[in-house]
C-alpha cells in the first residue's frame, strides 16, 4: 500500500436479496482484488438492512477483512448514509446487493478520482441491465456539451453505484425513501442535490456496471406506483436561470 494513495471503502448493501447477494459479493471481491493488485487499499463493508434469513446466511463467517454492519432502516438511502458514517475511508463506492461491478471499476474510478477534487463523483461508462430487461445505458459526463441539467427534472443520468469522496456523502446525505407517500428515487434526488450544489458527475471510460432488474425490484415498484423524486431545487423554474447563467 502507498500511504499517499486515497483509501477506498467499498460498501455492499443487502436486505432481501438472498443468494443473489452472494453473486454481488463475489463481484465485489473480484473488483477489490483487481484494485489491490494495483496497489490500492480497499476496506470492505457489508451493510445488512433488515436482512432476510437467506441474506444473513450468505454473510455469516466472512473473514476479518470485511466489516459487517446491521441496520434496521428498511431504506436504501439511510443505509448508505450509515455506511458513510461508519467508514473512515477517503473514497466510498456502493454496490447494491443484486448488482455487479465490472472488474476494473474500483481501480479505474479510484485512479480517476485521485486526480480530481472532492466535488467530483465518478460513474461507469455503461450500465448493463439484465434479467427482467435487456438494455444498456450509456453514461453521460456532466461536462459533455450534450449534458442538459433540465433532463434531471424528468430522468436520472446516473444511479447510486458511484464512487465519490466520503466528504461528498457527508455534505449531502441521501434522503429517506417514502414510497407510501409517493416518493422514491433517492439516488436521482442525490444526483440533483449534488449537481445543484456544484458537484461534478464524471464518467470513467471503459467501465461497466451490471444492474439486475427483477420484476419486484424497488426501482420497478417505484416506477409502477408513479413515485416522484422528493422535492429538490432543480425542479424549480425559479432556479432554471441559475443553470443557464452558469452554462
Amino acid at each position: 500500500m502507498t500511504t499517499s494513495k486515497l483509501s477506498l471503502g467499498v460498501v455492499l448493501t443487502a436486505h432481501g436479496e438472498g443468494a443473489m447477494a452472494a453473486v454481488s459479493y463475489n463481484s465485489l471481491l473480484e473488483a477489490c482484488q483487481y484494485a489491490e493488485e494495483r496497489d490500492i487499499e480497499v476496506k470492505k463493508m457489508v451493510v445488512l438492512d433488515k436482512p432476510s434469513a437467506q441474506t444473513s446466511v450468505i454473510f455469516e463467517g466472512l473473514g476479518d477483512d470485511t466489516t459487517i454492519l446491521e441496520t434496521n432502516f428498511g431504506d436504501q438511502g439511510l443505509v448508505r448514509n450509515a455506511a458513510v458514517e461508519s467508514s473512515d475511508c477517503d473514497l466510498i463506492a456502493f454496490l447494491d446487493g443484486d448488482d455487479l461491478w465490472g472488474e476494473n471499476w474500483l481501480y479505474e474510478a479510484h485512479t480517476f478520482l485521485s486526480k480530481q477534487d472532492e466535488k467530483t463523483i465518478a460513474h461507469p461508462e455503461f450500465n448493463w441491465f439484465f434479467q427482467g430487461v435487456s438494455s444498456v445505458l450509456i453514461g453521460l459526463d456532466q461536462d459533455d456539451p450534450k449534458f442538459n441539467t433540465d433532463f434531471l427534472r424528468f430522468g436520472n443520468y446516473w444511479d447510486a453505484m458511484c464512487m465519490a469522496y466520503r466528504s461528498a456523502h457527508l455534505a449531502i446525505p441521501y434522503c429517506e425513501r417514502k414510497i407510501k407517500e409517493g416518493f422514491a428515487f433517492e439516488d436521482w434526488h442525490w444526483n440533483c442535490e449534488t449537481v445543484w450544489k456544484g458537484f461534478n458527475h464524471k464518467i470513467v471510460n471503459d467501465t461497466i456496471h451490471f444492474k439486475r432488474r427483477r420484476q419486484n425490484s424497488q426501482t420497478l415498484e417505484a416506477s409502477g406506483t408513479k413515485s416522484l423524486m422528493p422535492a429538490t431545487e432543480i425542479t424549480s423554474f425559479a432556479n432554471l436561470e441559475s443553470f443557464s447563467t452558469a452554462a
Binding site: 472488474e103 439484465f130 435487456s134 444498456v136 450509456i138 430522468g155
Partner: peptide, 23 residues
C-alpha cells in the same frame, strides 16, 4: 468475466436496447 459469476447477465437474449440520456 461477470457472466462467469452470473450467467443470467446475458439474458434475456436478443436485442439489447441502447439508451443515452438525453440523446
Amino acid at each position: 468475466k461477470a457472466t462467469a459469476l452470473e450467467p443470467q447477465l446475458v439474458r434475456p437474449y436478443g436485442m439489447r436496447a441502447v439508451r443515452m440520456a438525453p440523446l
